[in-house]
Lab assay of single mutants.
Amino acid sequence: GKKITDLRVIDLKSELKRRNLDITGVKTVLISRLKQAIEEEGGDPDNIEL
């Protein structure tokens, strides 16, 4: 897996889109939004599978 902070903006957006989440904002905003979603799913933001 990869750390969420290692993802490119395009990867962050595709992961957010897959979860029907907002894809607007700067990279730090996208990271925190995706991180929260992954944690709510019970996942580990430091080890995500794309």
Rank of each mutant, 00 (worst) to 15 (best):
23 I>V: 13
20 N>H: 04
49 E>N: 14
42 G>D: 10
5 T>W: 10
47 N>L: 09
9 V>F: 03
49 E>F: 13
28 T>D: 08
21 L>F: 05
17 K>A: 12
26 V>T: 14
12 L>Y: 00
11 D>C: 01
45 P>F: 08
44 D>M: 02
35 K>W: 04
17 K>V: 11
4 I>A: 02
13 K>P: 00
39 E>M: 10
40 E>Q: 14
46 D>H: 11
12 L>H: 00
46 D>C: 10
35 K>L: 11
35 K>P: 01
49 E>V: 13
44 D>N: 12
6 D>P: 03
42 G>S: 07
22 D>Y: 02
5 T>E: 14
44 D>S: 09
9 V>G: 05
45 P>N: 05
34 L>A: 02
15 E>K: 00
36 Q>G: 08
28 T>K: 15
16 L>M: 02
45 P>W: 08
50 L>N: 12
33 R>P: 02
41 E>K: 02
30 L>I: 04
3 K>C: 09
11 D>Y: 02
2 K>V: 08
12 L>G: 01
23 I>E: 11
1 G>S: 14
9 V>E: 10
12 L>A: 03
41 E>V: 05
39 E>S: 13
20 N>F: 08
43 G>H: 10
9 V>P: 03
45 P>C: 11
28 T>Y: 12
35 K>H: 13
23 I>Y: 10
12 L>N: 08
42 G>Q: 10
17 K>C: 03
3 K>L: 07
27 K>Q: 12
40 E>M: 14
49 E>Y: 14
6 D>Y: 05
6 D>S: 11
38 I>N: 00
42 G>C: 08
40 E>D: 05
27 K>N: 07
2 K>I: 15
15 E>V: 00
36 Q>M: 14
8 R>T: 07
34 L>Y: 02
14 S>C: 07
21 L>P: 01
28 T>H: 14
42 G>K: 10
15 E>S: 06
49 E>Q: 06
24 T>M: 12
14 S>K: 08
17 K>N: 10
31 I>H: 07
45 P>T: 13
6 D>K: 10
13 K>Q: 13
38 I>S: 02
40 E>A: 13
17 K>G: 14
45 P>V: 12
43 G>F: 04
33 R>D: 01
21 L>I: 08
33 R>T: 03
34 L>F: 03
2 K>F: 06
44 D>C: 09
17 K>Y: 12
1 G>E: 14
47 N>Q: 10
7 L>P: 01
33 R>G: 03
30 L>H: 04
13 K>W: 08
46 D>W: 13
13 K>V: 13
20 N>Y: 05
13 K>N: 02
43 G>A: 10
26 V>M: 12
48 I>L: 08
20 N>G: 14
43 G>Y: 08
34 L>I: 01
43 G>I: 05
7 L>W: 09
36 Q>S: 04
1 G>T: 05
40 E>Y: 06
23 I>Q: 14
44 D>K: 03
14 S>W: 11
9 V>D: 11
50 L>H: 15
31 I>W: 05
26 V>D: 15
23 I>L: 12
23 I>F: 15
36 Q>Y: 04
47 N>M: 11
36 Q>F: 13
39 E>P: 00
25 G>S: 01
39 E>V: 13
15 E>M: 14
9 V>K: 03
6 D>Q: 12
46 D>G: 12
48 I>R: 05
12 L>P: 02
10 I>C: 12
30 L>D: 08
2 K>D: 05
49 E>R: 11
43 G>R: 09
8 R>W: 02
45 P>L: 09
44 D>H: 08
25 G>C: 04
31 I>D: 10
18 R>W: 15
45 P>Y: 09
32 S>E: 15
24 T>E: 12
48 I>M: 07
21 L>V: 06
16 L>K: 00
22 D>P: 10
41 E>C: 05
8 R>A: 11
30 L>E: 04
14 S>A: 11
30 L>Q: 05
32 S>Q: 04
13 K>G: 00
7 L>Y: 02
48 I>N: 05
19 R>N: 00
12 L>M: 05
46 D>M: 14
30 L>G: 04
41 E>S: 10
38 I>H: 01
21 L>E: 06
44 D>W: 02
50 L>S: 10
42 G>F: 03
47 N>Y: 09
3 K>I: 02
14 S>N: 05
30 L>R: 03
8 R>L: 11
21 L>M: 14
40 E>W: 04
31 I>T: 09
33 R>I: 03
14 S>F: 11
36 Q>R: 12
41 E>Q: 07
12 L>W: 01
45 P>M: 08
35 K>D: 00
27 K>A: 09
26 V>N: 15
29 V>P: 03
4 I>V: 11
12 L>E: 03
8 R>Y: 03
14 S>E: 13
25 G>V: 03
14 S>H: 13
43 G>V: 06
17 K>H: 04
30 L>W: 03
30 L>S: 03
34 L>R: 01
42 G>N: 11
46 D>T: 12
33 R>L: 01
31 I>R: 11
5 T>M: 13
24 T>Q: 15
36 Q>I: 07
15 E>T: 00
